[in-house]
Amino acid sequence: MFNFNEFIKQIASKSLFGTLLYAKTRAVYEKFMMHRFTDHAYIKHTYKKRFGHPINLKNPQTYTEKLQWLKLFYRNDSMPIVTDKYEVHNYLTNLGYEHLLNDVIGVYTNADDIDFDILPKSFVAKATHGCSSNLICKDKNELDWSKWQNIMNSWLKLNVYALGREWNYKDIKPRIIIEKLIEHQPLIDYKFMCFNGEPKYIQINNDLDGVHYVDFYDIDWNRVDFTYNKFKKSNHVLPIPPQFEEMKRLATKLSAPFPYVRVDFYNPPGKILFGELTFFPGSGLLPLIPVKNNYDLLLGSQLKLPKANHNLLLLNK
């Protein structure tokens, strides 16, 4: 079946022009999808398309079903705040975790306002209101800055909510945040999957020999067999990071207010740096493989859903 979003992603990978075209085309597509489907209809339609069977929202059992249930029937006022890649800095500072934060160079509502001359040689730019809208710059002298300004301004027209119905993104103010580049290599991303305030598994994103791998470990650092269907598993076992126990403690603290959240950290030498809080990884629409082992059901059994506090009339239909 033709997948429009994947098609324009392929175009984007070819050039800076493709990257800009992807963002502009996606913005139009997002508006179309928001008007075409209600949240309930979109989730039912997309879930069946991805998994090959209808979603069970009356009595959800699997991990992916429960994440869709949370989108429709649960609201927590803190979720949009900590989803915002700038506002989460204030949130963590107020909790006493300022030491976990990467250095912010600037925040902008228009990429044309960024003074390129005062930027450091290396930096990271990303949209505060979305995902996969990033510029990792290792040497600004190699950038075509005017084209990247156009690309970043096109990010400001995107709304991640439309293509996954992650409600926490819907009303975030679009901005560009520029942060210090974490220079350490390899820079491994440790993503703690937390169920009802308890870390259970760690998703490890790691690049090796030019290949991006996504592996999973249990909380005792035993490699487990599953991954998402769009990623590759590696053939090696990573050593436990030096500050693993402290990252686990922090993940427990930061996840406590939420039924489910993924808490991401980096662990360059001698330091823990916060990555982000993610409530619906892959919009909760990525099948786990191998399918025959039903890891979706295993993870779903770890998550106790809260009492519904939104869309109650829809819930009772």
Rank of each mutant, 00 (worst) to 15 (best):
T38S: 15
T25H: 01
Y91S: 10
H35I: 11
H45M: 04
P54K: 03
Y42P: 00
D84A: 04
H40G: 08
Q68K: 04
H89A: 11
V82E: 12
Y74S: 05
K24L: 15
Q68F: 12
F73D: 15
F32W: 10
T38K: 07
Y42C: 03
K44L: 01
E65D: 06
I55P: 00
R26N: 12
T64K: 12
K66W: 11
H53R: 08
Y86E: 10
V88C: 13
V82G: 05
K44H: 09
F51C: 03
P54F: 10
Y29W: 13
T46P: 03
Y63T: 02
H45R: 14
L95D: 05
E65I: 01
F32H: 06
Y47S: 06
T62L: 04
Q68H: 01
P80V: 06
K49M: 02
V88T: 13
V88F: 06
K66N: 11
Q61F: 03
H89T: 07
T83R: 08
Y29M: 06
Y86V: 01
K71D: 10
V88S: 14
I55Q: 13
Y74H: 07
K49Q: 04
E65F: 01
T38F: 01
D77C: 09
Y29P: 00
L70V: 11
D39N: 09
N94C: 14
F32G: 13
Y47W: 10
K44I: 05
T25P: 03
Q68D: 11
P54E: 09
N56M: 13
H89K: 15
L92H: 13
W69Q: 03
E30S: 03
I43Y: 04
F37G: 02
T38R: 03
L57E: 09
H89S: 04
M79K: 04
G52T: 02
R36C: 07
K48R: 15
P54Q: 15
N76K: 10
T64P: 01
M79F: 02
K58V: 11
N90C: 09
A27H: 08
E87G: 03
W69D: 02
F73N: 14
K49G: 07
Y91C: 07
T62R: 10
K71Q: 12
R36V: 09
D77S: 12
Y47Q: 07
E30D: 06
E87Y: 10
